[in-house]
Design a protein around this nucleic acid. Sequence first.
RNA 1: GGUCCCAUCGUCUAGAGGCCUAGGACACCACCCUCUCAAGGUGGAGACACGGGUUCGAACCCCGUUGGGACUGCCA
Length: 493
Amino acid sequence: MAGDAPRVRFAPSPTGYFHVGSARTALFNWLVARQAGGTFVLRIEDTDAERGREEWVDGIISAMHWLSMDPDEGPFRQSERTARYHQAVDALWEGGRLYACDCTRDQIDARNKEHGIQTPGYDGFCRDRVVTREGHALRFRTPDEGITVVHDVIRGPVEFPCSAMDDFVAVKSTGVPLFVLANVVDDIDMTITHVIRGEDLLPTTPKGVLAWEALATLGWVTDGSTGGPSRPMPGLPVFAHLPMLVNEQRKKLSKRRDPVAVESYRDRGYLPEAFLNYLGLLGWSPPGGEELFDTAQMVEWFRLEDVNHSPAFFDVAKLTHMNGEYIRAMPFESFIEACGPWLTGPLAPWPEANFDPAVFAAMAPLVQERVAVFSEVPPMVDFLFLDQPVVEEEAWAKAVAGDELAGTILAAAIEAYSSLTGAWERDALHAATLAVGEGVGRKLGKAQAPIRVAVTGRRVGPPLFEALEELGPDKTLDRLRSALERLAAGSGR
RNA sequence: GGUCCCAUCGUCUAGAGGCCUAGGACACCACCCUCUCAAGGUGGAGACACGGGUUCGAACCCCGUUGGGACUGCCA
């Protein structure tokens, strides 16, 4: 742990998509690097061949890019560094820190069952047996007594009794090194100063510390893989184990049941700025108590020492609210631009040719203050660009079919709208509709409901008269008439 | 079973012994505004897990209990 400029690493294993917990870990690492002129390294932990497909790695990189957290170095892939790990394994083997083991899991379990009642873990059966190194797993000989201390900036010193630590497998029988060892060798070679990761890794940290110390005792040197020459290995890094992100059941976020893919938030129209802001509030909060802040402020305020100890629930509702605040704060032009992907191309629910940017721009200010995520934009304006509106059946049932005055109102609206003498614009429509309502003894709020559903297909949406103005008299009257027809047909009248 | 971590409103958190009658935000409820829905405004309900210490004084320090979680794999 030296020096001024920290070198941190974000080391995900590529397992499909970018997990929100990983994003939070990446963010906190990134903050530490940025605030002190440090280096943010990306390392892909893919020692397990079962994992890791190139597309997953691409996914991680692009998600990180979306969040403006491009790595300064990497991606390094552990799968490409096996030769280096073998050197460490040789050193450890020759130093007597490793021994070969030919026990199968079943044998270990059977022995454990025989002895203790149910005590998982390895019993050290092969410690003093002679097993050939080739073709067998290599276990790390952990001390029988004493304690291993992990100095964690967030939690303080955490002590692990060595007696409770079993001889873990460091190298598979295939010769492939496992995570604990590869991790340590990499952190040494990459001169990592701060290991910032999830709390779930805390229990394995003492094993890494032991491996680190074993290597140090054996005179291991770094390989200069980060550019410099070979040099003495650095001391232990600073550890920081971040509190878990949990679901409503207070359990570690699960891939299967919880919405954890960062990509899915991107695809639903969350803003990266809002996403980062929210992530920053999980396990940490700025000294001034601010809730809304950008990454520059986070870089300025963030302190690893200030990170919480307890798990945090990933609350999509709060994220969504925050995203709405960001959307409303956007300059109008930016909002229009950000809506782009939702208005044309495959995401747009209407025929491309029907889309009219001018019409959208006219409605946009009303849309901007009504959506919390961009995926809500199309349904808010689809009636303008669809030949026929999507009629929500529930809305129709309630506001039209279920309203005994609906037919009267619709008919009166057709009459009033078609006899408008001035321009077809919001104020005239407003006044006309007000009159229609008075005709049936209803206030505007109640009177506009059937009209809204007839024309837009929905009970909620942007203000009606602005909408009608943009839609134009032909389509408006058309839709009013067909709604009236449908109503007549449906009710048998 | 073992090891470790954690414990303030439903949720995210502020709180680093007296400033706490515990603050803010999301969610929730009511009202106002209002052409629907939002946004906005006002108000409301809502927490220091429990028990012992230490102290003149504890949400804050210590111990225990309880509860939750993680790990315990030839995954990471």
